[in-house]
């Protein structure tokens, strides 16, 4: 009984895949996984772990709707295996272009090779992958995280240029293995290493979340008596750390200077209140640029391997100015 049913299932599966293959032949150059000539974009998002990410998702969804593309959206909830599954299902569905923000840097070769074999172009957004084979993706659009780390470091060097005493820094890193965590750490370290007075006395992961940011900062505060500066790889960890600093009876922004990266609305609010001293922007609004890229690669055109998003930095005064218009 069971065997019979399994056999029927297998036959059905074969039939479906055969049909899908036919669809591919007909669709082909017309660019029609959707069948009605609309460009179909499969996008595998990391998750909704922060306000930044939500703004990023919204930007992509809105610009896809504006451009009249069909967007197949998948949320990986921060797990690589979910993202790989999503990409595989995009391949099965024969979308025209796949775009995704890799959860971590490594381990993508196999699934991207599958996409390549299926002749579906891949665009990386906001995070890079660590692979020797650059032909696996068409383009990488996003921020330069090393540059962001450098900007954070430069502000620190400028802020403490007259200081002769050692400056004790604690660092809240992002998710271990994620490109923004690795690069923001490296860029920052590169700039401050020129002056031996800057010492990173503790550096741990806060998983990019408020709760972990708060908990790790509590431990930092207990085990280090003299912390001058906190460098957090995103606003949310910084916001969690602010809670820990306040609970310990210190004044964030004064007793401990705080530098963060991202510039989401909650972070900008804290910046305008003087609880954060400096934020390096990492803009999530890359939707319109992504749609242009997707159209070009779907038409078979060539694109730049690396496309940068436009970004700036904020001081408390600048934050007060732009805060009313901040969308995310």
């Amino acid at each position: 009984m069971f065997k019979k049913r399994a056999g029927a299932l297998l036959a059905a599966a074969l039939l479906v895949s055969a049909l899908a293959a036919c669809g591919d032949d007909e669709g082909g150059d017309a660019g029609g996984g959707g069948g009605d000539g609309k460009l179909v974009l499969g996008f595998a998002q990391v998750g909704a772990e922060s306000g930044w990410r939500t703004a990023n998702t919204k930007s992509i969804q809105e610009s896809a709707a504006e451009a009249g593309y069909e967007l197949k959206f998948s949320d990986a909830q921060g797990k690589q295996e979910n993202q790989i599954k999503a990409i595989r299902s995009f391949i099965t569905q024969r979308v025209d272009v796949i775009a995704f923000s890799p959860v971590v840097e490594s381990g993508w070769d196999t699934v991207l090779k599958e996409a390549q074999d299926a002749e579906i172009p891949v665009i990386l957004t906001d995070r890079a992958i660590d692979s020797p084979d650059e032909s696996l993706y068409e383009s990488f659009i996003g921020s330069d995280f090393v540059l962001e780390g450098e900007k954070a470091g430069e502000w620190l060097v400028e802020e403490y240029k007259d200081e002769t005493e050692p400056v004790n820094i604690v660092e809240l890193q992002g998710t271990p293995g994620a490109a923004p965590a690795n690069d923001r750490k490296a860029g920052f370290a590169e700039v401050i290493k020129a002056d031996p007075k800057f010492k990173v006395i503790a550096s741990q992961t806060g998983q990019f979340t408020r709760t972990d940011g708060k908990q790790v900062m509590e431990t930092f505060l207990n085990s280090n008596d003299d912390i001058d500066v906190l460098y957090a790889h995103n606003d949310d960890m910084g916001l969690g750390a602010i809670e820990a600093i306040e609970a310990a009876g210190l004044e964030p922004g004064k007793d401990i200077k705080i530098i963060t990266v991202d510039a989401v609305k909650d972070g900008m609010t804290a910046l305008s209140e003087g609880k954060i001293n400096f934020i390096v922007e990492c803009s999530p609004l890359l939707g319109p640029q992504l749609m242009e890229l997707a159209q070009t690669v779907a038409d078979g055109g060539t694109v730049e391997k690396r496309v940068l998003t436009e970004e700036t930095t904020f001081t408390p005064e600048q934050a007060k100015e732009v805060l009313p218009e901040r969308q995310y």
């Binding site: 998750g47 909830q77 921060g78 998983q207 979340t209 408020r210 709760t211 972990d212 708060k214 809670e243």
Partner: peptide, 16 residues
């Protein structure tokens, strides 16, 4: 307790 600790509700990270 988890959400009150950071005065926010993060439906992805809470209890993950």
């Amino acid at each position: 307790i988890y959400s009150s600790n950071v005065a926010s509700a993060d439906s992805n990270a809470a209890g993950n």
